Computed example of a mutant assay.
Amino acid sequence: MDGHVVRRKSDKKWRPPFERPKGIVLLATPEGWRHSILDVKGAMICGRLPGVPADADPREAKTAAAAMVVGLAREFHEADVEVTWDPPTEPRSWTGHVTLAAEADTTPPDA
């Protein structure tokens, strides 16, 4: 051979870096809003909620967190999801459930 290495294209399909989200925990801390996103296989992605100041209203933070999860699901899984928030059980902490938009819509089509 002439010294060139020929690589075969991978037959493996591209996989997203994490599975589809199924839940989220949002925490208000003195340093800022934090999130933990749980995926369908039990892994967690944690971090700071970008673009939301530490003194933001919880409604603003929940809206931003839900938008982030919806964007991640659409970008990496081509899935439309919805986030529904449970009533808070602890101060400064909220839990949300992430469902596929089709699963969240339980209204019969003829209704």
Score class of each variant (00 low, 15 high):
Pro87Gly: 10
Asp57Ala: 11
Arg8Pro: 05
Ala73Cys: 14
Ala73Asp: 08
Leu26Asp: 02
Val70Tyr: 04
Met68Lys: 04
Leu72Pro: 00
Leu38Cys: 08
Pro53Arg: 06
Trp33Ser: 04
Gly47Tyr: 02
Trp94Arg: 04
Ala61Phe: 07
Val69Trp: 02
Pro21Lys: 03
Arg34Tyr: 04
Asp86Pro: 07
Pro87Val: 15
Leu49Asn: 01
Arg7Ile: 11
Trp85Gln: 06
Ile24Thr: 05
Pro30Val: 03
Arg8Ser: 15
Val52Met: 01
Ser36Asn: 12
Ser36Thr: 15
Leu72Ala: 10
Ala66Arg: 06
Glu82Val: 12
Leu27Cys: 12
Glu19Phe: 08
Asp39His: 06
Asp11Ser: 12
Pro30Glu: 04
His77Cys: 00
Asp105Gly: 00
Lys62Trp: 11
Trp94Ser: 00
Thr95Asp: 11
Arg48Lys: 12
Thr99Ile: 06
Asp39Leu: 07
Glu90Asn: 14
Pro87Trp: 11
Glu78His: 15
Cys46Ala: 15
Ala64Asp: 06
Thr89Tyr: 13
Pro30Met: 05
Val5Leu: 15
Val25Met: 10
Gly71Thr: 09
Ala61Thr: 02
Val81Arg: 02
Lys13Pro: 05
Phe18Tyr: 09
Leu38Lys: 06
Ala66Phe: 08
Ile45Val: 11
Ala104Ile: 00
Ser36Gly: 11
Phe76Lys: 02
Pro91Ala: 08
Ser93Trp: 13
Arg20Cys: 12
Gly96Lys: 05
Pro53Asp: 02
Thr63Arg: 14
Leu27Ile: 13
Arg92Cys: 11
Glu103Val: 10
Ala65Lys: 06
His35Trp: 08
Ser10Asn: 14
Glu103Cys: 08
Val25Phe: 05
Arg15Lys: 15
Asp2Val: 12
Gly71Gln: 07
Trp94Asn: 02
Glu78Pro: 09
Asp11Pro: 04
Gly51Ile: 01
Val52Asn: 02
Thr106Ile: 10
Val5His: 15
Pro109Gln: 04
Lys9Phe: 12
Pro53Trp: 05
Arg74Gly: 12
Ile45Ser: 13
Glu78Asn: 14
Val52Cys: 07
Lys62Ala: 11
